[in-house]
Design a protein around this nucleic acid. Structure first.
Length: 99
DNA sequence: CCCGATTCCCCGC
DNA sequence: GCGGGGAATCGGG
């Protein structure tokens, strides 16, 4: 699954530029690494849109190829997860996420 | 207009 | 220094 392929799929959903950027960034998150909603929003040019980022993750159109479980809240805290925070913790632990 | 998988600032102790 | 409450900010129904 290459980045360009993902971009094409995202465009099919008629999403906003911001949403597309956020999803691409999420797709780019390296295995074993975690990123906060704020970091993600900032990387997309909207440092104050962390709420929108959470909303996007929840609406995640491609949950099978976008690792939304690597997106956490800031300060060592776990964020939310459409399939349950318990599952999220388990997935992160399985990847050996340290950040 | 209201809500949400958040975050930051200001008080009070 | 720590914990709680409220406001700010973006997209969607």
């Amino acid at each position: 699954m290459d980045k360009e392929r993902v971009r094409t799929l995202l465009l099919r959903y008629n999403l906003t530029d911001f949403e597309t950027k956020v999803l691409m960034r999420t797709f780019d998150i390296p295995k074993g690494k975690t990123v906060s909603y704020k970091q993600l929003a900032a990387s997309c040019g909207r440092p104050r849109a962390y709420r929108a980022v959470g909303n996007i993750m929840h609406k995640n159109p491609l949950p099978l190829i976008i690792p939304c479980h690597r997106v956490v809240a800031s300060g060592r805290k776990i964020g939310g997860y459409a399939y349950g925070t318990r599952m999220k913790k388990l997935l992160l632990k399985s990847e050996g996420a340290t950040a």
